[in-house]
Design a protein around this nucleic acid. Structure first.
Lengths: 355, 355
DNA sequence: TTGAAAGCGCTAACAA
DNA sequence: TTGTTAGCGCTTTCAA
């Protein structure tokens, strides 16, 4: 019995000799006024089972104005989503499962595509959207879809109508650099993230504030900005070292994130510089990368942030469906924490020059 | 103007003073018999722009029987999807974007939930489903949804109606172990994956065939089975070493996959055993884990497999919509390849005992 | 060139 | 207790 389409309520009703509504009442627990006689119920159930009836989510969604599906949008680089995404996404999946939602992912190569792509995406197939690390200007409020509740993680700007989840990156960077300074490091190089990302700027601010708090002057050329990926880290450190040939090596390198820090370790390794004997290295995020490489890093509770993003988004979807305004906070900040590791140790008393 | 719902075709039509069909013809390029006058077209476009009209995907899906959305189901462990998933998923996302599809993910904690969860999931919200490393018995053919095209990656059984993508794991394991034997290794321990996973069995077969081909007898206790995750690898090797106290260390450990191999490296590290000086280690999959840890491994083209899975699935969805049978292959096998790395080196002439 | 009507599969009113 | 009717937003005949 190879039919192209799945059985519908009408089919079940016909098979059971009742109307489609009766079948609906039995199968999908619609709260129509009254109940169904046991005989009818049994016939319907039997017919549904025989026809392998499954309610059609699209039709339901059209009626109920809800698909029980959340969207996630993230940026990919070189056609690949990164570890940061995976950690957050694990939390999202977990939270979505707990809330009975499914999750639809789409990725964009550049946030400049966002106005078009996000608008296309918010076309009824998802009830709400989570934006991961969106690089959107303040003008985004103008084009962001009005009818889809939005939550961002590590948003760049506070946008009207978008609930944003942040980690306290400034404090995390501060603590990490404070730790380095307390160990005795003085020449700490920070390979920061893109200047277009406010999070990267906050990390750099933490770096500077730690120096100020310790009364140590940070050399201006010890703070540079690059990308957020491994290759950027590799190249940024390599070119920095070439520019500073003959000068003493930095005592520590603080990467914008774990991927960048690993890129830096590659560069050091390729030059025969030992970590941590010659140079200490630390990252940021505490992704799996850091755990595998035993990299000192700053923990952000990414999985938890993903879960919370879902919770808040579902609450907003519920509220919208009942025409209630969103009562919750517009911003949530999560704590960060230094994670020590064998890549971070006190500086060596003698310093090698760069060649 | 805060309305709860987005503008519909009817709204646009009303605003432009034409029928909803005219608006549909203009905006959604419906191929209704004739064309629209330029004046009407302009009015409709203007109204749509003013109302920020977006076609509703759910309504379209109901009519066209297609949501342009593909499903992906994978298993999570400890509430987390793993690297294997991420590599494949990157390919899926890439392929889906190229085919104009979005991707809906759901994860299950155990493949025993699959009959219920997959059935629920295939309810019209997705046009087709990709199953990643499904552990399904041959009976699955009975309950798998009839009306949703299915593709599996690393399927366990050939299932009627399911197109399966495999990598040649047996050959990959064979080549890796052949390489080890050629280097002079004789005591090669294989920490295999779960015996319920046929892929794990094929890797073990490759291990055995390489020994046979080299005329080397593999000690039976040098092939054990455990889980596919890091912790399993760690524990499996630790307990193996405890069971073999006093005997010489294995010269090489071949993990069921990269995660297991890293767990083995943890165990060796904790015991002060050096890699590769005392023991060589290799993994399988060539995930990011291996690349970060510079682990010797066997490459499977996971991203490409994800892309191909999408291509095939979309072709099947197209075919079904036109009531055409699927003409393509029911199985595709991808090549594997040994990736060398500094964790794999010739054995040391002296062998330390296990303590 | 345009509009009216029907229907995708479902649910929610109301009537019988 | 059950069936009829209408409608979610869209597309597709078919008639004007």
């Amino acid at each position: 019995m190879r039919t192209r389409r799945a059985a519908t309520l009408a089919d079940v009703g016909r098979e059971a000799g009742v109307s489609a509504m009766a079948a609906s009442a039995v199968l999908n627990g619609a709260r129509t006024s009254s109940r169904i006689s046991d005989a009818t119920r049994a016939r319907v159930l039997e017919a549904a089972d025989r026809l392998r009836y499954r309610p059609n989510a699209t039709a339901r969604g059209l009626v109920s104005q809800r698909m029980n599906t959340l969207g996630v949008v993230a940026m990919h680089q070189d056609n690949a989503l990164n570890q940061y995404f995976l950690e957050l996404f694990n939390g999202v999946i977990h939270g979505a499962a707990a809330a009975g939602q499914t999750t639809t992912v789409f990725s964009i190569g550049d946030w400049n595509e966002a106005p078009r792509r996000i608008t296309e995406f918010c076309d009824g197939r998802i009830d709400g959207l989570i934006m991961l690390a969106p690089l959107l200007g303040p003008d985004a409020a103008e084009w962001l879809p009005e009818h889809t509740p939005l939550v961002s993680v590590h948003g760049n700007h506070e946008l009207k109508g978008v609930v944003d989840l942040q980690a306290d990156e400034e404090a995390g960077a501060f603590e990490m650099v404070r730790t380095m300074l307390a160990m005795g490091h003085r020449r700490i190089l920070h390979i920061g993230g893109p200047q277009s990302a406010h999070g990267a700027l906050r990390r750099a601010q933490g770096y500077l504030r730690a120096h100020a708090a310790a009364g140590v002057k940070a050399a201006p050329d010890h703070l540079v900005h690059a990308g957020y990926d491994t290759e950027s880290g590799r190249l940024a450190l390599e070119s920095w070292l070439q520019r500073h040939r003959g000068e003493p090596l930095p005592q520590a390198v603080f990467g914008a994130n774990d991927a960048v820090a690993l890129g830096c370790m590659d560069t050091l390794h390729a030059r025969g510089v030992r970590v941590p004997e010659d140079v200490s290295v630390a990252g940021f995020d505490n992704t799996l990368l850091a755990r595998v490489a035993r990299l000192a890093t700053v923990q952000q509770p990414l999985a938890e942030m993903g879960r919370r993003a879902v919770e808040i988004l579902v609450a907003r979807v519920d509220a919208r469906l009942r025409d209630r305004p969103w009562q919750g906070p517009n911003k949530v900040v999560f704590p960060t924490e230094v994670v020590p590791g064998p890549t971070l140790a006190p500086p060596s008393p003698v310093s090698r020059p760069i060649h």
